[in-house]
Amino acid sequence: MKKSDVPQDESNLASTNLRELCYAVDENGDYTTEHTTGWDPKTIALSNAIEEIKERVATAKAKVRANETSPIEYYMELHKMDLPVLASYVGAWKWCVKRHFKPSVFKKLSSKMLQKYADTFDITIEELQHIDT
């Protein structure tokens, strides 16, 4: 890539004034670095990924309202986590966390366990139990 061809497309980086560094060749064929504000192909990929997460959060929320899953799954999606990551944060087995997704099991969780989830998501137990508050 030539230095003059380093893309300067609009992207999510603009919100924090962050510019990335790109390696490119100058007129003499020597390698140098150039800042880039963004590049469409990856901006699209990123915003698609964000959309995907939003959809997952919305689906989880609907499932909690329909009493098909516990708020833990909703908060997990909200924090861009998946089962292995969440299990690692609360220090439990994956199958245990999955079990806690069951509304009936969630109701009976000890306050100690609830506190662990609350700490992980940086919320109170009250907020953990009622997703709309």
Binding site: V6, L21, Y23, A24, D30, T33, T36, W39, A45, A49
Partner: peptide, 29 residues
Amino acid sequence: HYLGQIVRMQEEIGTGGGGFRYIYAAFLQ
């Protein structure tokens, strides 16, 4: 979705463009 992820891993912050190929070319130079 998978294809988007491939491009992200190739180009996202840190690769210097082209899945590190440009940095490597700079190294060879």
